[in-house]
Design a protein around this nucleic acid. Structure first.
Lengths: 199, 199
DNA sequence: GATCTTTCTTAACCCGGGTTAAGTCGCTTC
DNA sequence: GAAGCGACTTAACCCGGGTTAAGAAAGATC
């Protein structure tokens, strides 16, 4: 058993060795550039105005990504749980200050690699570059789907979809965050849940 | 003056020759694969369930891209005017049936190139491939920005932003489409406009 | 175990937007 | 120019969600 500078989940290892197809040497090289980072609950991984200069894999914990309006209200864009990647993609690629807040909802253990390091590795390992492009594409389609969902479905429909597709998140995060994700206020979510109980 | 199989706008020519940096020969080769397509007002370029198998440049006219919910209501995701590209990006890349409707709001003249042709040209002309990747990236960020806007700003704020950034579209397309784009009903947009007149 | 904090629910009130339908204006068509 | 059509506005009604505040429940902390 080899000693790692970080202790990646099996999913992390499988992703790079089985899906991306890295050799053991390539994986070890990649892994040596990852640093573990802990974000306690309620603390921020990223705030608006900061430049996102690394990729962060959620090894453990959960986080929420949100925007802030002029009134100081938060609007959750998406959640992240284990085996997701955190960050502000636009800020990462443009290296300009971002507009997003990323806050830990539970204590988080992240595996982080700087953009500088990843860019260099990417030029050495073609499979990594392909993986990154594919990841961007998937992310693009997911963002588009979210936009379509927000426009097409009512908050109740989106609540039911969330309940069906990701029932586990209701066990882990406060309902007020779900409400923000659905673009409604907590009392409204409460009323909706009560209404749905009768069905 | 050369005869083209289609008559691209100056913007179209500049994009590929100046921005992408194609040589005259490369541009002519590319252009020879484009076909002109006319979509009369109210007709569809694409419907949900169809596979999007070509890129379409809007040479003239305007279109709206929307989803349909179970109740048969339309939800406009975005508009397209001259110098934009039309289509269902996910369907194009996956070659699976899409979920979007793309309908001409004014008579449209499109310049279209099949995915098959473009993929082949892309492998011959590296600059084209880079352009395509850059376009996807820009599109991704734009989609993300739209999602953030929809979640962060009220319909009134988004109306004012639209008025400021794209005042010309109010001269070209019916207000009912603007309303759909803003996720409100036409009477509500009317009330809002009346309210804003007093300011 | 008592206190404090966080989270969720509930109630009461109000306002804004959906809904429906009618009416106006402008443009096309014959 | 009359009729017809599409687009926009307006009015009236109703319902649902925001807002605020209070209370209950569950966890955390000491």
């Amino acid at each position: 058993m080899q000693l790692y500078r970080s202790e990646p989940s099996q999913q992390f290892i499988d992703m790079f060795t089985k899906q991306v197809g890295l050799s053991e040497e390539e994986f070890d090289l990649l892994l040596s550039h990852f640093k573990r980072e802990y974000i306690p609950r309620k603390y921020f991984y990223l705030k608006a105005g900061q430049v996102c200069n690394q990729k962060a894999y959620v090894n453990k914990g959960s986080a929420r990504t949100y925007t802030l309006d002029e009134g100081g209200n938060e609007h959750i864009i998406f959640f992240a749980f284990e085996d997701w990647w955190l960050g502000d993609l636009e800020s990462y690629y443009t290296q300009q200050p971002g507009k997003l807040y990323v806050q830990a909802m539970e204590d988080c253990e992240l595996l982080c690699i700087s953009k500088t390091d990843f860019d260099q590795l990417q030029s050495q390992v073609p499979a990594l570059k392909e993986w990154d492009i594919a990841k961007k594409t998937k992310s693009h389609f997911a963002t588009m789907q979210r936009l379509m969902d927000v426009k097409t479905f009512s908050s109740e429909e989106r609540y039911l979809q969330l309940l069906e597709k990701h029932p586990h998140i209701f066990q882990r995060i406060p309902l007020q965050y779900i409400a923000s994700y659905l673009d409604i206020e907590p009392p409204s979510l409460s009323r909706m849940r009560k209404r749905l109980l009768g069905k």
